[in-house]
């Protein structure tokens, strides 16, 4: 990341903090008493189904919508109180939100000038986001991926310490997604605060360090990705043996919970002649293996069964979603 101004960023080390953030539109509550933080130096994933209130919260952060109550601040300052907004916070809202007849260069120049920056910074940013070859093309001819690059370039113009990206991976091809991920990781590595929203858990698994999960405007969880996974994914073990009755008894004696017995069937892909299967919940494969070994029971299969993060997300947000089965 080329930095034009060698002076330290005034906002390095500043995070985002929401406290009791609430937004009501008539009788609809879009954001409901939301409290969370996004720390500097890490990527915070802002996760929730469509319509969960992510964009509304981000718009309140940027001063584009007024909270009904509560606050959302950059450090401890609201958007309107920032002395140098472009150098403090950059935002990518909707990548398509550009005038289609303006060139990429003119678009960036207008926002650079608003921040007191010149043409050199525009050229740096065009290069940074890989649009230098398309600088003089009208934005209306751009692909979605190019729009996203232009949007993130606009957000980076002032070299801000805080970046807010609303669904930045939406509609990107795999190469674009990898590019955006690497860029976010690099930017966070420089000590910036990155808050990026998505309605897809799968995008978070590979990108986020911290998670803020919301549903129907309410906070469902705030945790590091690792803790979130540990606390919310059930750990089950599928074990298969010739004598499941004996094994089940041994496992229960060892304090493990046997949830289900299934017959040998084609569905589980069990080899022919293998025994029936047991599902042991909340256990490590090694614990199950040790019990079997101690009892001298030969195992035909020992498999850790993990709920995918997508499943966890769907389960957690299911109750909090407006759309039922369309949650993801």
């Amino acid at each position: 990341m080329p930095i034009t101004d060698p002076a330290p960023r005034p906002t390095a080390g500043v995070g985002i903090r929401a406290r009791g953030l609430t937004k009501r539109y008539g009788s609809t509550t879009a954001v409901d008493d939301l409290t969370f933080t996004a720390r500097p130096g890490v990527i915070t994933g802002f996760l929730g189904p469509n319509g969960a209130g992510k964009s509304t919260a981000i718009r309140m952060l940027l001063g584009l919508a007024r909270p009904t109550s509560g606050t959302i601040t950059i450090g401890d300052r609201r958007m309107a109180e920032l002395e140098d907004p472009a150098r403090t916070i950059g935002a990518l809202l909707d990548a398509r939100a550009v005038h289609p007849h303006r060139t990429a260069y003119a678009h960036l120049l207008a926002f650079a000038q608003a921040a007191g920056l010149g043409r050199r910074r525009v050229e740096e940013v065009l290069e940074l986001v890989g649009l230098d070859h398309a600088a003089t093309r009208r934005v209306g001819e751009f692909s979605l991926g190019m729009h996203q690059r232009l949007g993130i370039g606009t957000a980076l113009l002032g070299d801000p310490g805080v970046l807010v990206l609303d669904e930045p991976l939406n509609g990107l091809d795999p190469e674009g997604i990898r590019w955006m991920r690497t860029l976010m990781r690099d930017l966070a590595g420089e000590g910036r605060t990155i808050l990026f929203s998505s309605h897809l858990m799968s995008e978070m698994e590979l990108t986020a360090d911290d998670l803020v999960v919301i549903g129907q405007g309410r906070l469902i969880a705030q945790a590091s990705l690792r803790d979130f996974v540990r606390d919310n994914t059930s750990r089950d073990v599928l074990v298969r043996a010739a004598s499941t009755v004996e094994l089940a008894r041994a496992l229960e004696r060892a304090g493990l919970t046997v949830a289900a017995r299934t017959g040998a069937d084609a569905e589980t892909g069990a080899p022919a002649g293998a025994g029936a299967a047991l599902l042991v919940t909340g256990a490590d494969p090694s614990a199950v293996g040790h019990v079997a070994a101690a009892e001298g029971i030969a195992l035909d299969e020992l498999t850790a069964v993990r709920e995918s993060l997508e499943d966890v997300f769907l389960r957690l947000t299911h109750d909090a979603t407006d759309y039922g089965s369309h949650a993801a």
Binding site: G63, P85, L93, D94
Partner: peptide, 11 residues
């Protein structure tokens, strides 16, 4: 909807 970006740059 570019107004959102404009008002983020110049609150």
């Amino acid at each position: 909807a570019m107004i959102g970006t404009s008002l983020s740059a110049v609150p």
